[in-house]
Write a protein that binds this DNA or RNA. Structure first.
Lengths: 322, 322
DNA sequence: CGCCGTTGATGAATCGTTTCATAAATAAGA
DNA sequence: TCTTATTTATGAAACGATTCATCAACGGCG
């Protein structure tokens, strides 16, 4: 019935009397309107999809919070999904998003090859890439300058006098892994030192367990680096734990610097120096970019790439006590 | 067209030839079926709703993973939402779930009063309460035995000779906060000691920041307790950091025991003794209970309450080095 | 008294999928 | 060849909210 719809969506265009009558009926019958019917009629849902590579990582949890905040402000819901770094899971979730006719999608792609968002374009679902820089040709994106982050970390360590620095990192396919190293190497060049100042320590995943592996390998290295730069805080936590256990003092024997500045970096026993990667802000800005792309002029839209500046947060893991 | 539907849902009931023809058309047109139309027809969605009180807490992240796993196995999606411990947000999300005609809902209620799931019952949406024990009258539930958890923690500390134990905890409305204390007090009675062995230290929230507050207050206490039992690991992390900073040695000067056994308890510099609260398993079992309630006999269903046993995980934060 | 303008209520059509009843085509048996 | 049985294809109805065109009611004014 059309009147009911008016009562719910345009209460001012309906007379006081009928409005009351309809409201009463709604109460009595326990009526709850069907979102799927609304969606079907509208042709699109009232949700944003957010697909990240690891929901367990506090970094993405923070990003999701930022997104959600912005979305709720715009009256939209968010569905957060986990591709678990699997390209096939990523594709499956994007298809799901397409079937749900999501209003828009925020995507942290698993790898930097291909354009996984093509499934979405066919349905005219706009997509914003988060936490990865991509060209402005196809989609908007919000990322942080990882080269700068690496540079900041490198300068900090070099200024403190370190001359042998380990770089602990996950799979090289991740652009971030490469960019952060590039930044570190640039700092090394700036300081007029040779590239073999940096010791590469690859691990499989960006998690604490891999950090512990790396820790054991670090202890065995000779000469042992005096500092380690980790591509992610979880790695740094694992490393600190292992080396602390082996009696290596942080920061005196080994300075440790992480990346992302997750909550637990600050909460750590020896608070971790880290490069602050503004997770919540990335999430928020990406959602806002998406909303802008949705809202008024569907045509006159130019894709944007926002790049945020990371920030060095110095804590005790790199600063010996006075 | 009915045939298309058959090709997609019952491909064996359609001839080889037409199937191929339809598939080809689907390819060419880039057809993606509309989930909202399916839902409308079916009268219910193919999703489970999961509403927790803090998506940032790794405990709930783990719980969500368990739920998701079980749901995906059953061909259902999961939408995770965050009530942020606000009863009004909780009610809003439950209404949202009702409008979406969720297949079922997993709920970690904000407080133990009332029955927030009533909005769902009216739509015949089954609800399973997670991580809180409730009677079996209205809904199923999966929780852990928090009294036992407190008991285990208490016995462990008392056996180690502690005679003055702080209990750091968030709002008392949470049943868990009460239960864990009850367990602790039972251990104290068992040991034939008086109830004022336990020093109550209330804080506002179950997070690291509140833990730091508690840490400062602990240091100021006199006589200072020799051990502290925290209602949650995040509190314990905050406490350890603060007291470590102040030169109090853990575990020698102060033994610390947490609750939940989140990933970061083990990853901590001084690994944290904790009561393992089986998050992923709670999530998984709750989802399975929900699926069972959904599946075959809608009527002959009796609500169940599963109570899991927590487990003490002893690490260095309570065991002085030999 | 009748005409017109305004406001508010009504009903039909629509979105895309599924289901079910029916129709057509094919195969088998008499 | 004709009937019956079986497989496969077709068409219409339904789900529930929204929209839009139409219609009724009412007050003002000539």
């Amino acid at each position: 019935m059309g009147t009911v719809s008016n009562v719910l969506n345009r209460p001012d265009q309906v007379s006081e009397q009928t409005r009351a009558r309809v409201q009463a009926a709604i109460e009595i019958l326990g009526y709850v309107r069907s979102e799927s019917a609304r969606q079907l009629r509208a042709g699109r849902s009232r949700m944003l999809g957010l697909l990240v590579t690891d929901t367990g990582n506090p970094f993405f949890a923070a990003l999701a919070r930022g997104t959600e905040e912005a979305a709720v402000r715009a009256g939209l819901g968010v569905m957060v999904c986990n591709s678990a770094e699997s390209p096939s899971a990523e594709q499956a979730y994007l298809s799901l998003f397409a079937e749900q006719r999501m209003r828009g999608v925020l995507l942290a792609p698993v790898d930097s090859h291909g354009a996984p968002w093509h499934v979405l374009s066919r349905q005219n679902i706009p997509c914003v890439v988060v936490d990865r820089a991509v060209g402005e040709d196809e989609v908007c994106s919000v990322a942080a300058d990882d080269v700068l982050g690496g540079l900041l970390a490198g300068r900090h360590l070099l200024k403190a006098g370190h001359r042998r620095i380990a770089y602990v990192r996950g799979p090289e396919q991740l652009r971030q892994v490469r960019d952060r190293r590039d930044g570190l190497l640039r700092a090394v060049r700036e300081a007029g030192m040779s590239a073999d100042t940096v010791v590469d320590v690859p691990v499989h995943r960006h998690d604490v367990r891999s950090g512990r592996d790396a820790g054991h390998r670090l202890i065995g290295l000779s000469p042992r680096p005096s500092a380690v730069f980790c591509a992610n805080d979880l790695l740094a936590l694992g490393i600190m734990q292992t080396v602390f256990d082996a009696g290596v003092r942080v920061p005196d024997d080994l300075a440790v610097i992480g990346y992302d500045d997750i909550e637990f970096a600050e909460a750590c026993l020896i608070p971790l120096t880290s490069v602050r990667h503004p997770a919540a802000e990335i999430g928020r800005l990406a959602a806002e970019l998406l909303l802008k792309e949705l809202d008024p002029a569907p045509e006159g839209h130019r894709h944007e790439s926002i790049v945020l500046q990371p920030e060095l947060v110095v804590r005790r893991s790199t600063v010996p006590r006075a």
